[in-house]
Write a protein that binds this DNA or RNA. Structure first.
Lengths: 223, 223
DNA sequence: TGACTTTAGTCGCAGAAAGTGACTAATTCG
DNA sequence: CGAATTAGTCACTTTCTGCGACTAAAGTCA
């Protein structure tokens, strides 16, 4: 338990900031100085003694001027070499940001997930890992609300879930499940959006309730 | 994106090897040389250029002489200071091992999860994170089988799920769900275990099937 | 103005899934 | 042999889900 390689390995903290713009997810990238058309995730080598979460929050502050509305570690990535730094390992964090209130600092740009420029292989793996983390958390915590502004229509909420899940949902079923979860509260405001009946605005406001103690589900695809 | 602290940070790879002994989970610890009664998780500072997964597999090899039947990264831990090494960050891996076939090398001992000796704060957090990782994967992949020997009775399988989930399951419901999942195949062997009717032995053998496309579930405890 | 389109929101049924107790089967113990 | 114990199954009830059809409130356009 005490071997030491000749060179002490180093690590970085990288941030995958995600927002929903229109009908797609987008990731915040920064232009790497020097090279021609090269982009990278925001990253830092943390100061010695700095906690990982703190470092991630600081990176978000530098890129957006604010903390994400939700953030979580997405794991350590060390296999694909070639990081913007020479770090042997990079710890990735995923953060969610509502697009309406997010204003990136100069040099930072939102890229749609389907139209990402080339990244280092490791950062590319981080983006993939981040989307997996988001999808995995989706049925464990109400993170979809973190991509929406403070008030929203139920159709917007449903579209957000459809975007994150990558599949269509039935309107009535969606609202029934939502009602059973006691997660939203109607405001007394309505929004008229072009044609069609105006939609009522809701806000995220979970109410205490006991955990539904469902049984076991073998609902995975094995490997 | 290019600040550098004076001292380059370092990291370690730590392993939380889990097995099920009797009616409890157990974790493999090793006695730290030197100090009096001190224990720690198996860990290493990986060689420069070594992939994280490879390092974890090597640590398992050194501790058990074999690879776990399932292993996954449980994240990077850097907040609680005081690691056996001086590493700023430690990448934790969880591994599952069937107890019947596992024979730890000298110096390594299984400790029941409820009776762990004192560990460094960071490694203590890793053990907690590892159990969370296991529970989180339980409904996404058939990892309970990885703690059982090659053949097992359905009662043993149910007890394993009850142990991992921390709650009792109804026998009929459990078997109904299991049947729907096409995960096990009966062998032609039976095992008589003291009194009571002998139980048929099964083996893990998933069969192809299409993914159940269930709808949305708001089945979490917010926040 | 009035028919038509569009989006929001609700209802109710049919089928599937889950919770549960009671039943049968095969063995050991006394 | 009968009681106790564990395995395995069945049938009934309750709950949940997929889904189509319905009403409501706006805009569009002749």
């Amino acid at each position: 338990m005490r071997d030491r390689p000749s060179r002490t390995p180093s690590f970085s903290v990288d941030l995958v900031l995600v927002t929903a713009v229109g009908n797609a997810l987008a990731v915040l990238l920064t232009r790497t100085t020097g090279d021609r058309e090269r982009w990278s995730l925001p990253w830092r080598v943390p100061q010695a003694g700095e906690a990982l979460d703190t470092a991630a929050a600081r990176i978000s502050q530098e890129a957006l001027g604010e903390a994400p509305s939700w953030m979580e570690q997405a794991g350590a990535f060390g296999d694909g070499k070639r990081h913007p730094s020479d770090a042997d390992v990079s710890v990735a964090y995923v953060g969610l940001v509502p697009h309406e209130t997010a204003s990136p600092r100069a040099g930072f740009t939102w890229f749609q997930l389907a139209e990402l420029p080339q990244l280092s292989p490791r950062q590319r793996a981080m983006v993939d890992g981040a989307t997996k983390t988001i999808q995995g958390r989706l049925d464990q915590a109400p993170i979809a609300f973190r991509l929406l502004p403070a008030t929203f229509t139920l159709s917007e909420l449903q579209q957000m879930y459809e975007l994150l899940l990558g599949k269509r949902l039935h309107k009535a079923s969606f609202r029934r499940a939502l009602q059973g979860a006691w997660l939203v509260e109607p405001t007394d405001e309505w929004r008229s959006e072009g044609r069609g009946r105006p939609a009522q605005l809701y806000r995220y406001l979970p109410k205490k309730r006991r955990r539904a103690h469902r049984g076991l589900r073998f609902d995975f695809l094995y490997p």
